[in-house]
Amino acid sequence: MIKKLLFVVLFGAVTVSATAQEEKIRFGAKAGLNLSSITGDFTDELSMRTSFHVGALVEIPLSDKFALQPELMYSAQGAKYEFSEPGFTDESTIKLDYLNIPVMAKFYPVEGFSIQAGPQLGVLLSAKDKGEDSIGGEYDDDIKEFISSIDLGLNFGVGYQLEAGIFFEGRYNLGLTDINDENTSDDFSQRNSTIQFSVGYKF
């Protein structure tokens, strides 16, 4: 009985070791371009903000075709605002900075190319409305108290990885939760929407 148990343990250890060598866990970092906006009610005057994201990741292989990729990302999001009427103009940038934690499920239909999807938790780090109007001039308002501290979303994307460890990704984040935290926010709903293009390296 003991010999059989030792054999099973040894066989399992060899199998796990072989799998780990063939499909090893890889750590990495990435950075790239954000094209972010805010959708929903009362967003006609809002347009896309161009910014960036940067962070770290780990790819955990589940098989030769599937992997799990948790990430920890700083992401600068928000939108541009522009309003004009006779005698008054207002232009500003709504800056919403998040610590995002996506967990991506990855499917490799062919070597190097992946199709990705997964949930994302966002923690609001700061929120500012910075701009200039034709009456009061320049302003830089802290609006964090009016923005929800937690943002939930879904990511969809594709990626391609070179043998050297360099990879490229394109991703869309669909916000699921209302980002407004005002007393009157029950009357309307607004959500984050972000397109991301990334380049990174896994080692």
Rank of each mutant, 00 (worst) to 15 (best):
D141W: 07
L6G: 03
I38L: 08
F88N: 04
Y108F: 14
S75F: 01
I2V: 05
E182S: 11
R49D: 00
F107W: 14
N183F: 03
D90F: 09
S17N: 10
L174W: 02
A76G: 01
V158T: 13
A117I: 12
K3N: 10
G159D: 11
A13M: 14
D187S: 14
A117G: 15
E111Q: 15
L152R: 02
E85K: 12
N183L: 07
F168N: 02
E169D: 14
L99C: 07
Y81W: 12
I195S: 04
G112K: 13
D64C: 00
S148V: 09
T184H: 04
I166G: 01
G170E: 04
D90G: 02
V103C: 06
A13N: 12
N34H: 02
K106N: 11
K80N: 15
T177A: 11
Y139N: 06
S47K: 12
F188Y: 15
K80S: 10
Y201Q: 04
S63Q: 03
I60W: 09
S75E: 01
I166E: 05
K3G: 00
F66P: 03
I60A: 10
G55E: 10
M1I: 02
D64S: 15
F27A: 13
L68A: 01
E85H: 03
H53Q: 14
L124T: 10
P109H: 07
A127E: 01
T43H: 04
L57Q: 13
A20Y: 11
I101Y: 01
T89M: 05
F11E: 02
F197I: 15
Y160G: 11
K130N: 12
T50M: 10
K80V: 02
F188H: 12
T93W: 00
F107C: 11
A117M: 15
A56N: 13
T177D: 05
F113R: 13
P61N: 10
S198M: 09
Y98P: 01
M104A: 09
F11Q: 04
E132M: 07
D181K: 10
N155A: 11
L154W: 12
D187L: 14
K30R: 12
G170I: 10
F52N: 05
Y172A: 10
T19L: 15
I60Q: 08
F107P: 04
E163K: 13
L57A: 11
